[in-house]
Design a binder for these strands. Structure first.
Lengths: 249, 249
DNA sequence: CCAAAAGTGTTGCCCCTACACCCATGT
DNA sequence: ACATGGGTGTAGGGGCAACACTTTTGG
């Protein structure tokens, strides 16, 4: 089978000739608007929440949308994501990582727009929202439907991504206050993973990892015996990161 | 998106106006050419290899480049990746998965081009290359340098991605012939992960997973006792996929 | 004193690791 | 016969799961 396709500039051999005018080549390419969408997760009242606004588009009237924006011409993708976070939450020191690119030709009613989804984790309490335009607020991840664009799919993939990542890396601490009780930590894992965990085993697990700093402080204003407060030792973790290996499927 | 008005009252709808002309909105956005780059891995002579061509650009004269192409206007991203694979290898039934988007404004000398990297795994022997334009051939992953664009970074990230994935999912079988010996399987894991594994434990591990079908056939033309041949039971694996859970970092 | 959640140990099991010898084939 | 890799079993240890009672605080 001859699969040569003379119309593909990058695949076609130029009879031994190299392309000298790279700028003209790129200018000849079809171009598409690129956005970044932020899936901003928070944890509050024992629920995993995601930050959404009402869509601006009449086409999606009443539907919820992720926070996103066009990537500026001279901007790194990640830079664009940080910009969106800063504009909406006033924060620039939050966890952020790329999840996936979504590029279905029909995902935007105004024509093709490709978006790169970023996942961000932050502590709702410590980051009061600055701007409430378009009914910006937190939604329980479990109760999402009727979202604009393909944003339901984006959230679902980001949630799957998160479930996997928090088992391999200490991301979960980004969702908690600096000082937290073991109960809060366990609730977080239980809610995100959708499982129930044994309290004693959970404690043993985390204490044996030895990345929790005992603050010798206790919860206050709780209607029961107060729990001890801890913080996560990021420095120690960074030094001792294990290179894990285990074939398991 | 106007996000500068920090004094907005709670839950205010932005001027109450919805955008009616989505097409005009999208047309007003800056646009960027989008490519897909395929990191095609193969396994041969006990080496993990990646399929590369010489760059067409004079700017990168002599440097090696991934196989990539512009995403066509009505094409899914994944569809573009499959098209590239088909053009170059004649194959359309290969493993393919998105790895990451790369969008640094300066990654292409001709102006901004954003690329989505896809990772593909195939068996070199069973897929003879059809087109050798631009010196298309297989390179040992260990000996890459001086690649065009940011392709070294793309390959590195894809390789990290692969190392992680083959420990969680049976991807490795895509790199082997349908019938393989346990030694070949072990070599593959050892090379990709860069570790040495105990032969007995490796066998126990895979036999206990019970996803290998014993073909009652043996290697031929080997200068030693021939090993048994197996194939992977994809159907059984799909049915029994485990939902793994283990906090571990 | 009651409610509610904190805190704490032990046991069994399974899986992983480490390790050495004989077997089948080609030359 | 020899060289080469194929094939096999066992013992010990570590980590995970299962499991119940006492303690501390607030109301």
């Amino acid at each position: 089978m001859n699969t040569t396709d003379a119309t593909s500039p990058l695949l076609r051999r130029r009879n031994g000739k190299l392309i000298t005018d790279a700028r003209a080549l790129v200018a000849s390419y079809p171009a598409v608007p690129i956005t970044v969408d932020c899936v901003i997760f928070g944890f509050e009242e024992n629920e995993l929440k995601v930050l959404l606004i009402r869509s601006d588009l009449q086409y999606f009237e009443g539907k919820w949308s992720l926070l996103g924006d066009i990537v500026k011409e001279t901007e790194e993708l990640e830079e664009a994501a940080y910009r969106i976070l800063l504009q909406r939450t006033g924060m620039n020191d939050v966890f952020l990582e790329q999840v996936k690119a979504f590029g279905s030709p029909s995902r935007h009613p105004g024509g093709r727009v490709i978006t790169i989804a970023y996942c961000s984790l932050l502590n709702i309490k410590h980051h009061e929202l600055k701007i409430y335009d378009n009914e910006l607020h937190w939604h329980n991840v479990k109760n999402l439907n009727d979202m604009a664009f393909d944003h339901k799919e984006v959230v679902d993939e980001s949630y799957n991504w998160l479930q996997k990542r928090i088992q391999e890396h200490p991301l979960a601490f980004n969702l908690l206050p600096e000082k937290f009780s073991l109960r809060e930590l366990q609730n977080l894992y239980e809610v995100i993973l959708g499982v129930e965990l044994d309290r004693r085993n959970f404690r043993k697990k985390f204490f044996s990892m030895d990345f929790l700093i005992d603050l010798d402080q206790y919860e206050e204003n709780v209607p029961h015996r107060p729990g001890k407060l801890y913080k996560f030792n990021f420095e120690k973790y960074e030094k001792n990161k294990k290179k894990w290996f285990a074939i398991d499927f």
